[in-house]
Design a protein around this nucleic acid. Structure first.
Length: 265
DNA sequence: CATCATGTTATAAT
DNA sequence: CATTATAACATGAT
């Protein structure tokens, strides 16, 4: 499920444990969520203080003082929850951190998500700091967008938008949304796209998503493609359009677009 | 039973 | 080497 704003929202659910000591923890029996850091290593979190979270695209960083950092992402079906201190882990709760007042839960039935633990003093670990500029950041310049478009000139626009190195946090529905708002077919070659316009739409979509979904899971505007793209019989929300939306597999993912507003060129 | 799912990554092909 | 395309991963819903 999670893209930029969904990931941001999920991390806020762990705010229930901020400032509290980890009294005990639970790791589930499945190895896959722990393919990068062995499950046993997470015992080191017991006795630390959970001091807060931040996100970068779909990546999450949680600080446990002193100098332990829990990182990872939610894959396709991951989510974070806060439960009562007596929470009984379900089959899909791969990590549960218990504080005096709450249980911080990492749940992911499909297990494409991953959890890592890093020890680093004096701030976030180097691999976190080395992540590329986020779309919301000042460093996300038109020149950078232009470089991405040029280097992947023959790639379909939507496929490039899913590249986390260039467009951190963009996932399937956001990529479709950006194409829709640009009135460009998802399959147009990236090399034909105007960088400044793409940057403007990307930033607008990210900002509004964070203000709605990211803040309280409220709905993005009805004028967006997003609320219509999966509905059976979904139609283009543009005024005086109403055309049936198209769906087709592009580079292994389902793309959705309006054939009238986003013609194939 | 077959198909599909809001993601990432290794590997193959150009 | 750089870029583009595909398959695999694991599980549940339809």
């Amino acid at each position: 499920m999670p893209e930029l704003a969904e990931v941001a929202y999920y991390t806020t659910r762990w705010a229930a444990g901020v400032g509290q000591e980890v009294l005990r923890m639970h790791t589930g029996p499945k190895a896959r969520p722990f393919r990068q850091t062995a499950a046993g290593a997470f015992r080191a979190l017991v006795g630390t203080i959970y001091s807060g979270a931040r996100t970068h695209g779909k990546n999450m960083l949680f600080e446990f003082a002193p100098q332990l950092w829990l990182t990872g992402h939610l894959g396709m079906t991951g989510e974070l929850l806060a439960g009562p201190p007596e929470h009984e882990p379900t089959a899909h709760d791969h990590l549960v951190l218990y504080t005096r007042e709450s249980a911080l839960i990492f749940r992911d039935f499909r297990m494409f998500g991953v959890l890592r633990l890093e020890e680093w003093a004096g701030g976030p670990p180097p691999d976190w700091l080395a992540l590329p500029p986020q779309i919301q950041d000042a460093g996300f310049t038109t020149a950078r967008v232009a470089e991405a478009l040029q280097r992947h000139a023959r790639s379909p626009l939507k496929a490039l938008l899913l590249d986390q190195h260039w467009f951190p946090g963009i996932g399937n529905w956001m990529a479709d949304e950006v194409c829709y708002q640009l009135r460009l077919n998802p399959a147009v070659p990236a090399g034909t796209v105007e960088a400044a316009a793409l940057r403007r739409v990307l930033r607008a979509v990210c900002r509004k998503s964070m203000e709605t979904i990211g803040r309280d899971w409220s709905d993005p505007p009805r004028s967006w493609l997003m609320p219509h793209r999966w509905k059976a019989g979904g139609v283009c929300p543009a005024k005086s359009c109403g055309t049936a939306l198209m769906r087709e597999t592009l580079r292994g993912r389902t793309a959705c677009w309006c054939p009238l507003c986003q013609p194939v060129a």
